[in-house]
Simulated scan of single mutants.
Amino acid sequence: MKENFARRGGRSRPAPVAPRPAPPEPGALAAKVRTMAPSMTRSMQRVAETVAGDPAGCAALTVTGLAERTGTSEATVVRTARLLGYPGYRDLRLALAGLAAQQASGAAPALTTDISVDDPLGEVVAKLAQDERQTLADTAASLDVAQLEAAVTAMAGARRIDVYGVGASSLVAQDLAQKLLRIGLVSHAHADPHLAVTGAVQLRAGDVALAITHSGRTVDVIEPLQAAFDHGATTIAVTGRPDGEVTQYADHVLTTSTARESELRPAAMSSRTSQLLVVDCLFIGVAQRTYASAAPALHASYEALAHRHSPRDAGR
């Protein structure tokens, strides 16, 4: 969550400061690098990508040695370690040693290679499957469970839930909204930015607005979330950029894995995989919290759909 002063209900208020999270476990280091690298400076990216690509070699280097290997400075190495969640370089080295041991034992898979135009179709299938697995693992590793719990609590007690997304993210928004409708919650997915803002200004305390944007800077998603925030609704952002503009108006931020874009696989495809995982986590959490009402509502929706698909109705 951004540490800023945002207007709500005509008053300024500081966003609460979250407790400092524990350093990532060794197995989550590569996921953290993939999530944070796009928002780093180029010199910090070199450090982050080098340690993720060769944890064993980097674990043996001093801070000076890693700075020389990456063509950066000792200060850049230390700043990179801290941005990745480690108090200092010594803690990062310990994590690198742990990651190297996991990779040596086969517990931590190596990064997948890009798909090339000459790859046989069977190899494409294998690479895509591995990339999907890695995307899900990265998202699970970087997801803040405390933020997820808070988002679930807000949604479970909400009078109304509006979901915003455009492009590929609009498909994810629609998926969440229809899931919530099936357990009896009032939910709307707005892909049209005008309708989204129109609905957002009607929200109040007790309502929830949820924005889905991988880049964290999609204006058509940020504007309605800001409007909902200003009118007192609880706001949630699902984004691949925890430092993106959308988080300025989010009470709760759920981070997805950063997509590995290539010529043959646009970022939208792999980012949607991680977004769908977060959506499923939200839905299951809400269904658990509202089980007494969710179970009969879900049963009723199954019955209604089963009737429509009944063979007796074929041809009618």
Rank of each mutant, 00 (worst) to 15 (best):
L171A: 15
R316S: 13
G98Y: 02
V163N: 08
R217P: 00
G315E: 05
V125T: 04
L94K: 11
R133Y: 03
V77W: 07
A56H: 02
T72A: 01
E25C: 07
R265A: 13
E74M: 06
C58S: 04
Q202K: 10
E149W: 01
V33W: 02
A295Q: 12
A300E: 06
A297T: 04
D138Q: 06
E3G: 04
A250L: 12
Q130N: 12
H194N: 11
A141M: 02
L61S: 06
R20L: 15
A304I: 00
K32V: 12
G165W: 06
L94I: 08
G157F: 02
E303N: 07
V253I: 13
A156D: 10
A137I: 04
A295L: 11
M155Q: 10
S170W: 07
A146H: 13
A108D: 14
L298K: 03
R69M: 11
D114Q: 11
T235S: 11
S274M: 08
P21A: 06
A67I: 03
T64G: 14
R93W: 03
H231W: 09
S257T: 05
I222P: 06
P242V: 11
T70N: 00
V51K: 01
A140L: 10
A52N: 00
V63L: 06
D131I: 14
E261D: 04
S43F: 14
A52E: 03
P224I: 04
L203Y: 13
Q178I: 15
A150W: 05
Y291T: 01
L282H: 13
G10Y: 12
S12R: 12
K32Q: 15
I212K: 14
A97F: 00
R69F: 05
D162A: 12
A59H: 10
K2W: 09
K32G: 08
S215R: 01
S262G: 09
L29R: 13
A146V: 12
G88Y: 00
S170E: 09
E49M: 15
H299D: 09
A196W: 11
S274P: 00
A250H: 07
I183G: 09
A129K: 13
Q174H: 08
T41W: 05
D220W: 06
A314E: 08
M36K: 05
R133Q: 12
V279P: 04
T112N: 12
A28I: 09
V77R: 06
V286G: 01
G71Y: 04
G216Y: 01
H214A: 15
K127E: 02
F5Y: 15
T198D: 06
L203M: 11
P193M: 03
T235E: 07
Q275E: 08
